[in-house]
Amino acid sequence: MKIQKIISLLLMSVIITSCVSDVDFNQVDDISIQPIVKSSILYFNATTNDFIDPITNDPITFISDTTDMRLFDSSLAQEDVTKIVLKFNIENTFNKNFNLEYIFFNEANEVITSIPFNIINNNILEQEISYENGDLQNLLSAKKIAVIATIEVNQDSTTPSMFLNFQSAADSYFNIVVNEN
């Protein structure tokens, strides 16, 4: 049995004394990732018919709509987003100018921020707005969005094929750190 013990001892010592080069697992704490999430928010295509009262056939000077919007609700978005870029693309083929309000509301239905656009007739408006720090925190509390589109009157009458096309999206920049402390 002696030799057996010696051999096992020898083998154990090989395993125990086997080397591990200089590794530092605390580096895990430094791991961070920066994904960018792109998502559309809302869109509409308002045509001439949307600006005519269906009952009286009288022209309407403004239209509006409201929706719940829960894109920022996740805890990941709430805690780890460092920047949001809102993107807008608005095309106006009417022969009239439009004023458009893009309004964010919080849970208590209070206005957080309101973005005004003036889109002149037969034109395309592209715009990007970046939110960071305090403005970002404000934006992240958004639960609802309203859009109000108003036609500037006293211009030529409309023809049926005209439209106001509105597109909006958000690019959210994340910074996710493994160990926050």
């Binding site: 998502s39 809302l42 869109y43 509409f44 269906p54 709509d65 929706t67 719940d68 919007m69 829960r70």
Partner: peptide, 17 residues
């Protein structure tokens, strides 16, 4: 998903989300 499509109905209370 292309976003929420607003339809501007005459009644309020739109359950897009």
């Amino acid at each position: 998903f292309e976003g929420l499509n607003l339809l501007f109905p005459t009644e309020e209370n739109n359950e897009y989300w």
